[in-house]
Design a protein around this nucleic acid. Structure first.
Length: 252
DNA sequence: AAGCACCACAACCGCAGGTGA
DNA sequence: TTCACCTGCGGTTGTGGTGCT
């Protein structure tokens, strides 16, 4: 069989769509064994009919033991607004400053948040008023001119939540600040400060974030508990299983 | 109760950067 | 130095849940 045939086989065998609980358990145990790095390898050896990419995404956004669940706290909201005004749509970077939150989560939050904001603004502007109403958003965002003056979806070609942010000019060429980049290159002033320490794994980063942010946002009990229990996943019992998959409404 | 609109979130896609052979 | 592969990021889409009419 040639390489193209292998590719075809892989494509035909690759599963898509929602993950099942079974798949989750399988992925967690393989990540436990091999670490959260070589996703293609994990995808292959685990027997999951998923791409490495898909495995990574599932892990990072849903299965990682440090993840918080539930609504954003007011502190987190404030933090997101603050960091977004600073960094623009650098979701992964923003996420690193919010323990237990993923870039995807923050991105989604921002998207719906800003949609709401856009609708409110539209409503306010349309009849005759020029006075900004005091939504919950506005009350949180007291020091954020960048966002308040953001172009609205209906009137601008740019993505409605793409503000850029102050730093975008500086880092226009530095898209990736992945773990690898953190170890090697610095593309902005902020990167320099963040790359002084080398990171070898996600866990190190998460732990680092945890310790850095400890004063600001207290880690949730879930955070602590997950770290304590996660590495004992072999021989998973039901209580632990529920711990790992607290929100299994999507499981088939 | 049914239909609809909106929201929240999971998952996919395309692209770019990093790395090793 | 080049190239292929892997990983991570940001953008986008799909879907289930919920509240309202």
């Amino acid at each position: 069989m040639g390489q193209e045939d292998d590719m075809m086989m892989m494509m035909m065998m690759t599963r898509k769509g929602p993950w099942t609980e079974q798949e989750d358990v399988q992925l967690v145990s393989y990540v436990n064994m091999f670490g959260d790095r070589r996703w293609d390898f994990i995808a292959k050896v685990s027997g999951l009919k998923r791409s490495g990419k898909s495995c990574r995404l599932r892990w990072v956004n849903y299965l990682h033991p440090g993840l918080k669940r539930g609504k954003m706290t007011p502190q987190e909201e404030r933090r997101i607004l603050e960091l977004h005004s600073k960094w623009g749509n650098r979701w992964s970077r923003i996420a690193r400053k919010l323990p237990g939150r993923t870039d995807n989560e923050i991105k989604n939050y921002w998207r719906t948040h800003m949609r709401k904001k856009a609708q409110e603004k539209k409503r306010v502007l349309s009849p005759s008023s020029s006075v900004s109403n005091s939504s919950s958003y506005s009350s949180v965002c007291t020091s954020n001119p960048t966002i308040d003056s953001m172009p609205m979806m209906e009137t601008n070609e740019r993505s409605f939540y793409d503000t850029g942010g102050l730093e975008m000019v500086v880092i226009a060429n530095g898209k990736s600040d992945s773990n690898n980049t953190m170890k090697s290159t610095a593309t902005s002033v902020n990167d320099i400060s963040e790359t002084q320490d080398g990171y070898n794994s996600m866990d190190e980063i998460w732990k680092d974030i945890d310790s850095l942010e400890g004063d600001d946002i207290a880690p949730s009990p879930v955070w602590d508990y997950s770290f304590n229990t996660f590495w004992m996943i072999d021989g998973l019992e039901e209580t632990e299983s529920n711990m790992f998959f607290p929100d299994n409404k999507r499981a088939i």
